[in-house]
Structures are given as C-alpha cells and as structure tokens.
Design a binder for these strands. Structure first.
Lengths: 238, 238
DNA sequence: GCGAATATAATAGCATTACTATCATAATTA
DNA sequence: TAATTATGATAGTAATGCTATTATATTCGC
C-alpha cells in the first residue's frame, strides 16, 4: 500500500515536470518557455536581479550575463518591469499549483487554512519539479521586489490586461477557505493579502531592519505569527 | 473651563507651528528647512512625485516644476532616492509628534493603543500646524512609494546611518503600549509593523487592486480591520 | 536535402537620465 | 565694503532604455 502510493507520487512528479506554469500572455512579447534563449533570459534574470537588485538591473547587464545581445532580450520583454511581472506571475502560478496539490484530500477547512498559510509564509526550498527556475532565488526576489511590480502608475492598465490575475486568484482561493470557516467574517481578502505581504516584509526586516520585527529562537516566528493572526481573526468574537 | 482649554490649545498650536520636524542629517547635503529653495524642493517634490510617480520623477523635471536649475537641487539631495528618504523620515517624525500629542494624559493602555492604531491607519487630513508641507499628498506618497525607500541594496548602509530611525522609533513606541497590555506577547514589533504597512497596502489596493481587499459601506474597513487584528493578537489566548 | 521562413547575433545609434563641473551673479554676513 | 555663501546658467559625460539594420544561424515544410 505504501509502495503503491509511492509509485503514484513518482508518476505525478513525472507528470508535473512536464507541465509548465501558464503566465498571462500580455506580459511577454514572445513566450520565453518556447526557446532556449527565453529560458536563459528568465534564469539569468532571476540570477542577476537576486544579485544586484532590481534598480541596478538592466537588460544590457543581463545580456552580458547570459552572453546574448541586449536587443535579443527586447524581443521577449518590452522592459525590465515586464520581466519582473513575468517572474511574479510565474511565482504565484507555481505557488497556487503547489497549494492545490498540498490541499487535495484534506477535508477540514481549519487544516486547509493552516497548510495554505504555512506554505505562503514559510521559507521556500528548492522544487525540483519545475526544471530550470531557481525557486529559492525567486522567493528572495518576491520578498524584496514584488511590491515594485504593482506600485507604479501603470497598475490600472496592467491590471485590466490581467497581469495580476495569478496573485488575485491565489488570494481568492485562500479567502474561500476563510469563508468556509466563518462566512460572517467581513475582511477575508484583506486578511489574506495582509498576511501574505506582511510575511514577505517581515522576512526582509529580519535581514535588514531587525528593530521592526521579532526573532524567536527555535521557531519560524513569521509562520507562527501569521497563523495566529489568521486563526484569531477568523475565530474572533467581533 | 472649556474656554480656558481652548486658549491652551491655541497656544500649543502657536508653539507647534514654529517647531519643525527633525530629519536625520545623513539624508540631505544641505538642510532644506534652512532656505526658500530648500522648501520649494521639498514642496515641489511632494507635488510632482504625487502627480507622476517616483519612477518617472527626475530632478530635471523637478527643476522645471519649481523653476530652478537641476544642479541646484543636487546641492540639497544626492539623488531622488535621498529626497524620498527625506519625505518618509519627515512623515514618520510628524506622525510620532502627532501621536505623542494625541496620547498625552490618556491613562488606559487599551485606549492608547486604539488611538495610536487609528491615527496610523486612517486617511490623513491636512494639518495646518506644519506650514509648507501638504500632508495629504505626502500620505499618498507614503502609501505608494514608502516600500521603495528601504527595498534597495543600500538598506544596510543607510540603516547604519540612522536614516530609518524615525520609523523604528514610532514602531517601538507603539510596541511599548502592546507590551504594557500584554508583556507575554512575543511578536509586538512584528504586529505593529505588519499593521502599519498592511494598512498602507490595503489603501492602495482599494484604489487599484480591489480584488485583494474588502470595501464595507459606512465604515473605514481598514481602520476597523487593523484595530481588530491588534486587539485579537494582544488579547489572544496563545 | 533545399528553399523559405524565422530566430538570433552583431553592431550602431539616439533621446533621456543621473549626475558633475564651471563660472557668473545675487544675497547675506562679518 | 569686502568676503563669504547661495543660486542661476550653461555644459558636459557616462550610463540607461530603448529601436533599427544587417548578417548569420536554425528550423520547418515540402
């Protein structure tokens, strides 16, 4: 029986490794998943943004990094901002995928919420199922750069094109679990997006502005804190 | 008696209007409060960043806006990033000042926490006490640009110079109230910074990504939500 | 296997940005 | 009134954020 489920898991992994995360086509000019250069742009982009930060990152530098001309990169992405949107969108798509898998067959909504929030707020480790992308570096980029993907004057236009739908869909999915537990709670989307964004900020603060956070020995304080906030809010008396 | 306190308030306002918010001297090359041009740079900067956003904002455009040469602005601030730091630092200094005033003579720590969180999360209205700065516009800038002031590769260095001390001191002050109410709560700094940042993000979402938040008729949902999170966490059973 | 289409490389160029430098003139201060 | 200091006017430079052009690979249909 144990062996049998093990085989199923292997089969699923085989299946998953051939799947790719779908990213809204308005983000790119040419789908980077369809070519070797495209993948090198994405991988190299993750590498370089993680290393030097989004402000210092340029397509010229990326070109040097992956040994391809700057102009070739522009055939895939209009601007570095669009590349960032691509990375964020890929990340949320990947997260949602993992979450759906992690929640299958879990009946209790309380347990589902626990799993979802833990997944969203814990430190990410490498996922071998999605070949070429380094999820650990990507997670660091999400932590320090994701706000910049929507805090711009183009948000409204980009939002209309659906570039944030991956994130919104994830938030909606978790909010639905909250609703299942307590249909009277009025702020479920607020709660979920606050906890997700909050956890990212706190991870950044731990590294760079420790006075703004709390480090507790022997536990992942950010996960514990996030779970507490969620549970207290959903089961709250008000 | 009522008239007497009214006179005291007028006297205090008179006093305050002559005070100015102290900003860490590492942020500027020359204190903008000391000259007419300096004030025009700050005011015009607030105006223009609010209008076109921080990405599109340049010192050349600011020069045209305030009808002074670009090079003159560089005598006050090294870069537009430093100007942003200045604005954020001023804002937090102003907030802390208002908070201290708003909390004087309030004994109950619960009530103090309520007042502090309401102040920090509600929509800002014009404060005539601090002459030349438009606090409403500045609050919009804090909402949409403040994350960019620390999400850079220079954080650690800038943090060492004390550039973020205004924000940290405010967070510490509110965290102290939390400690007063429940000294066993382990995550007070996390809680406070999450709620402040979270409220800003939620205000942004209401305008631009409404699917990520909840709008409730007849109340300021962001303030209510923030207060609930605080109270639940501090009085939480865990 | 060959020609046609398509993708990439190599190179150039151009307007804007992010500054720095210089010098003249105005305002302040000793 | 001279000396200092602040501002204005103007220039210049390296890097950024692109677009364009042409040449060379690579892939695809037949």
């Amino acid at each position: 029986m144990l062996l049998y489920s093990h085989i199923i898991i292997l089969f699923m992994q085989e299946l998953i490794s051939k799947l790719s995360i779908r990213v809204n086509s308005h983000i790119y000019l040419k789908d980077p998943e369809t070519s070797d250069l495209g993948k090198r742009i994405v991988d190299g982009g993750i590498d370089l943004i993680d290393e030097i930060g989004f402000e210092a990152f340029t397509f010229r530098k990326l070109g040097q990094h992956i040994k391809s001309p700057e102009a070739s990169i522009y055939r895939y992405f209009e601007s570095k901002h669009k590349l960032l949107l691509y990375l964020m969108s890929w990340y949320w798509g990947w997260m949602e995928y993992r979450m759906v898998l992690g929640l299958t067959n879990i009946k209790s909504p309380q347990e589902r919420l626990n799993i979802a929030i833990t997944m969203l707020t814990e430190q990410v480790s490498q996922d071998s199922n999605f070949s070429h992308i380094d999820e650990v570096k990507l997670n660091r980029i999400v932590i320090s750069e994701s706000s910049k993907s929507y805090l711009t004057k183009d948000v409204d236009h980009e939002n209309k094109e659906g570039v944030f739908s991956g994130y919104k869909s994830l938030v909606a999915r978790v909010s639905d679990i909250v609703e299942e537990i307590n249909p009277n709670y009025k702020y479920r989307h607020m709660l979920v997006s606050t906890v997700i964004e909050g956890a990212h900020h706190q991870r950044y603060f731990v590294e760079h502005l420790p006075k703004l956070t709390d480090v507790v020995k022997g536990e992942d304080a950010i996960v514990t804190f996030s779970l507490q906030i969620m549970i207290n809010a959903v089961q709250g008396n008000e």
